[in-house]
Computed example of a mutant assay.
Amino acid sequence: MKKINKETILEVIEKTDYILITTHNKLSLPIIRRIYKKMINGIKFDDIKVCGNCIIDGHHRFVSSILAKIKLDEAKSSKTSATIEYKWESVDFVEEEWDTLEKIQRLNELDAEFNKIPIEKIIELTK
């Protein structure tokens, strides 16, 4: 996969048969890249939450899965009155890192536990 940025994400979304509607207008590229690296190396993730064809929770996982050509399972969820649907072209994919080092460490620990592998393997995959 070439560099993961807004252009490559939109190219892949445009070519895929399976697409969900985003309810977020901003996503973090560093998070997408981290999850993508894990996915292409066989790390499994929890279901994304959807209501109809809208993503409620799991936007970064969904985008990463589209890039990795992996279908994630879905869990039914519900919208609230504050839920807004956006077109993928209008999403702001930012270079800003939203996770602290502590949160990244905790997520790596959870991924290792979920996949029943050592934390060191998860850390190596994300370098």
Rank of each mutant, 00 (worst) to 15 (best):
L27G: 01
E7S: 12
I32N: 01
E95D: 15
F62S: 00
K121Q: 14
T80F: 12
W88Y: 14
V91H: 11
L125A: 09
I43N: 11
L20W: 07
S78Q: 14
E85I: 14
E74F: 09
E124D: 14
I31H: 12
M39N: 05
I122K: 00
G52Q: 07
N5F: 08
K37T: 00
F93L: 09
F45E: 05
V94P: 01
E95Q: 14
F114L: 10
V63Y: 04
H60V: 04
K103M: 13
T126C: 07
I55R: 04
T100S: 15
Y18W: 11
E97I: 09
F45T: 01
I40N: 02
R33L: 00
S64G: 10
Q105A: 12
L125T: 07
I56C: 04
A68Y: 05
I35G: 03
D99V: 06
N41W: 08
E96V: 10
I117E: 03
S77Q: 12
K26D: 04
E120L: 11
K87I: 03
I66G: 01
A112Q: 02
L72C: 05
R106G: 01
P118R: 11
K44Y: 05
K69V: 03
E113D: 14
R34Y: 10
F45L: 11
A112R: 03
M1F: 15
E97S: 13
V12F: 11
Y86G: 03
T100Q: 07
I56A: 02
I104H: 06
V94S: 13
E113G: 03
A112K: 05
I4P: 04
N25K: 13
I19C: 01
K44I: 06
D57Y: 04
K15P: 03
I4E: 06
N5M: 07
A75G: 04
L125Q: 03
V63E: 01
D46N: 13
E120S: 15
K71P: 00
A82V: 10
W98T: 15
I104C: 06
I123A: 10
G42I: 04
E95W: 05
E102N: 08
K44F: 07
R106I: 08
E97Q: 15
D73F: 09
K71N: 10
C51M: 08
R33I: 14
I119N: 07
K116R: 08
T8S: 15
K121V: 04
I21M: 04
I4G: 05
H24A: 07
S28M: 11
K69N: 14
K69Y: 09
L110A: 10
I9Y: 06
F93A: 10
E11I: 01
V94Q: 03
K2L: 08
D57M: 02
I123G: 02
M39D: 06
P30G: 09
I40Q: 04
R61N: 05
I66Y: 00
V91A: 09
G42S: 07
I122Q: 01
C54P: 00
T126R: 12
L20Q: 01
N5H: 12
V91L: 07
F114E: 10
L20G: 04
I19W: 03
C54S: 12
L29N: 06
I84S: 10
K15I: 00
S64I: 06
T126N: 12
I19H: 02
E74T: 15
I84K: 15
T23S: 15
K38A: 09
I13W: 08
L20D: 02
K79I: 12
A112G: 07
L29V: 05
E95R: 06
F62V: 01
E85K: 15
I21E: 15
S78H: 13
F114P: 03
H24T: 08
C54L: 13
